[in-house]
Amino acid sequence: MVVLVLLCSTACTSTPTSAGRTTLGLSAWPGWFPWQVAQEQGLFQRNGIDVELKYFDSYTDSLNALSSGAIDANSQTLNDTLASVSGGAQQTIILVNDNSTGNDQVIARDGISGVADLKGKKVAVEQGTVDHYLLLLALTEAGLSQKDIELVPLATDAAAAAFVAGKVDAVGAFAPFTTTALQRAGSRAIVTSAEFPGAIPDHLVVSRAFAKNRPEAAQALVNTWFDTLEWIKQNNGQAVEIMARRGGVSTSDYRSYDAGTTIFTLRQNIDAFTPGVTPTHLNHQAGQIADFMVSTGLTPNRPSLDGLFDDRFVKAVRR
């Protein structure tokens, strides 16, 4: 009964927050698997919201689904949200799930000891997504550009498989696909997101129409997230089993991802949404990413940051 009280600390109601079902997308990333826990433990319902949790095997498909209006909300990175906004999508970020602190990696075959060694090599990555961004950051830091490598555009699962099969020299991937890639004998991560603090924050993103017209539903999603984190804290073993099963990995593999994904507390959420001039502040990081996207040709137009962040929902969570 104590756990139930904790779960209801944000908002509990016996009726839906607003008419209709809310469709929430997620794909293979450890920082988003708590949504699976929320579904299996009935935590959406306890917050009065009817949610269809839609899992996408392809992360890119989830981005396209939100941009096209096929789903109401999606789990996606800041840089991918900026790419969508640059293309004309009207989206807003209402929650920070986590920061990638090592679980995004560029993994290379034996004989490649650093990023500089990628010159002239085949590198597979899902073009235009977060690990493409990490690859470009690493190349830039090493004094190279995308023109110095042979980019092989593949969906992340296919990219990892191609690397294991020896078809490419390196791969940009995120957990749990990093586990697949590292099955290649002699392979190792030559750069990770831990080397670029704050560069890859992950979010709950909704259409601006959803945030405006269904604020009760948006609030219920945010409330559910923090209730879920509390449930995971109270029932860690069971939660890890659920999340590992969703990721298609063993519980021991899943636990190995802990250090590489830093889940944000409510306090960290509020601090991140607060305007500032360091990598921990979303407005600062978004500006840097937007400039980088244009300079490297990821997008022809600098995305507008107006309306990108909506902090009212995290601020309304009861503490």
Rank of each mutant, 00 (worst) to 15 (best):
residue 272 A to Q: 00
residue 3 V to P: 08
residue 6 L to T: 08
residue 139 L to S: 00
residue 151 L to D: 02
residue 41 Q to T: 09
residue 224 T to M: 02
residue 147 K to L: 11
residue 158 A to V: 15
residue 220 A to Q: 05
residue 228 T to E: 01
residue 1 M to Q: 13
residue 247 G to W: 12
residue 3 V to W: 03
residue 277 V to M: 15
residue 158 A to H: 12
residue 95 L to P: 01
residue 26 L to D: 06
residue 188 R to N: 14
residue 58 S to R: 13
residue 317 V to Y: 05
residue 194 A to K: 05
residue 188 R to W: 13
residue 266 L to A: 04
residue 52 E to R: 08
residue 179 T to I: 14
residue 149 I to C: 08
residue 104 D to V: 09
residue 39 Q to T: 09
residue 160 A to E: 08
residue 137 L to I: 06
residue 37 V to H: 01
residue 184 R to E: 10
residue 222 V to G: 04
residue 81 T to N: 06
residue 239 A to C: 11
residue 291 D to H: 10
residue 206 V to T: 09
residue 242 I to K: 04
residue 135 L to R: 02
residue 259 A to I: 08
residue 32 W to Q: 10
residue 24 L to H: 05
residue 68 S to G: 07
residue 97 N to D: 11
residue 192 T to A: 10
residue 17 T to H: 05
residue 37 V to W: 01
residue 230 E to V: 13
residue 258 D to V: 12
residue 23 T to A: 06
residue 272 A to Y: 02
residue 214 R to L: 07
residue 125 V to N: 04
residue 26 L to N: 07
residue 243 M to Y: 09
residue 96 V to T: 14
residue 312 R to W: 14
residue 124 A to N: 11
residue 316 A to Y: 03
residue 36 Q to S: 09
residue 319 R to G: 14
residue 47 N to I: 13
residue 94 I to A: 07
residue 253 D to L: 10
residue 272 A to H: 01
residue 220 A to H: 00
residue 225 W to Y: 11
residue 56 F to L: 07
residue 243 M to N: 08
residue 219 Q to L: 11
residue 11 A to C: 14
residue 66 L to C: 04
residue 149 I to M: 03
residue 29 W to E: 12
residue 132 H to I: 11
residue 262 T to M: 13
residue 169 D to E: 14
residue 57 D to L: 04
residue 243 M to E: 07
residue 7 L to V: 01
residue 280 T to Q: 11
residue 313 F to D: 00
residue 174 F to W: 15
residue 7 L to C: 11
residue 235 N to K: 03
residue 133 Y to I: 08
residue 319 R to Y: 08
residue 92 T to I: 07
residue 4 L to F: 14
residue 302 R to Y: 07
residue 100 S to L: 15
residue 233 K to F: 03
residue 34 P to S: 00
residue 156 T to S: 04
residue 114 G to S: 15
residue 232 I to V: 04
residue 205 V to H: 00
residue 119 K to Y: 07
residue 51 V to C: 02
residue 183 Q to V: 06
residue 206 V to Y: 01
residue 15 T to C: 08
residue 118 L to G: 02
residue 270 I to N: 09
residue 258 D to N: 15
residue 264 F to L: 00
residue 234 Q to Y: 05
residue 134 L to Y: 03
residue 107 I to W: 05
residue 133 Y to N: 13
residue 261 T to E: 01
residue 250 S to M: 09
residue 291 D to F: 05
residue 289 I to R: 03
residue 121 K to W: 14
residue 278 T to S: 09
residue 75 S to F: 07
residue 248 G to L: 07
residue 30 P to Q: 06
residue 271 D to H: 12
residue 97 N to Q: 13
residue 272 A to E: 12
residue 295 S to A: 07
residue 151 L to G: 04
residue 52 E to S: 03
residue 170 A to I: 00
residue 110 D to G: 08
residue 292 F to I: 07
residue 63 L to V: 04
residue 128 G to K: 09
residue 19 A to T: 10
residue 208 R to K: 15
residue 226 F to P: 03
residue 108 A to F: 03
residue 44 F to I: 07
residue 276 G to N: 05
residue 4 L to C: 10
residue 10 T to P: 14
residue 87 G to M: 09
residue 303 P to M: 06
